[in-house]
Design a protein around this nucleic acid. Structure first.
Lengths: 111, 111
DNA sequence: ATAATATGTAACTTAAAAGTTACACAAACT
DNA sequence: AGTTTGTGTAACTTTTAAGTTACATATTAT
């Protein structure tokens, strides 16, 4: 059976995970130093890290006993495509409106 | 106390809701005609509609006893901004890499 | 060698999300 | 007026997600 890959939309639905990504956009950080930014326990953060990692939002580099978390683009791609699709939708709606207006204007001028 | 506004990330985390948005990007549809596209019960779809509506992803126009669902941009804005932020991050990473390469190249040439 | 540090993981609890069925009600046919 | 249709909502169940504590393990420092 196919491995049920993590749904990136599900992954970023959690505010803590979004905040982790936010923090990592400033600096690469170890799991403990990340955890200092949160009220929740260290194992909870550790879980989020695992999820972000397996969904391709971050990569992890082991340095001795420390694990540095680094932002990674892969996880973002599907989200971006999704947003782009709807962007296109709004854009084409605008373009239709524009075309309609141009038509109205030229009709007006030809009176 | 502040009204706990729906988190748009949470809203689109559900695959059914994303599919609803997808369908509505093709046509505006009534709730029943939307429900025909799903295995779940009509009330379940109705619930999703309510969520999408209150999060600003759709608007609803009542025509007699029917309710037409229409895609609305508002709900998408926060998502878009979020994605844009990280887009900027990747872009600036690329630019830094480019700058580094240019430096290396000019160092090489000055040997 | 021992202690401290950075981390993973298992077992459990709690809370929230998504679905169901059953029922209510207003609009539209006949 | 009575029936059908389109919809909302309440009450409930089930599933899943997120958190906790407790413990295990490997690396580093003393």
């Amino acid at each position: 059976m196919a491995i049920p890959a993590l749904d990136p939309f599900q992954v970023i639905a959690d505010p803590s995970r979004r905040q982790i990504l936010q923090l990592l956009s400033k600096n690469s950080l170890t799991i403990n130093s990340l955890a200092e930014n949160f009220d929740m326990s260290r194992p909870a953060v550790s879980k989020h890290i695992k999820i972000l990692d397996s969904a391709g939002f971050i990569s992890i580099q082991n340095i001795g006993r420390e694990r540095y978390c680094i932002l990674k683009q892969d996880g973002f791609n599907e989200l971006q495509e999704w947003i782009n699709y709807f962007d296109g939708f709004w854009l084409s709606k605008l373009q239709k409106l524009e075309a309609l207006m141009n038509k109205k204007i030229s009709e007006h001028q030809n009176k």
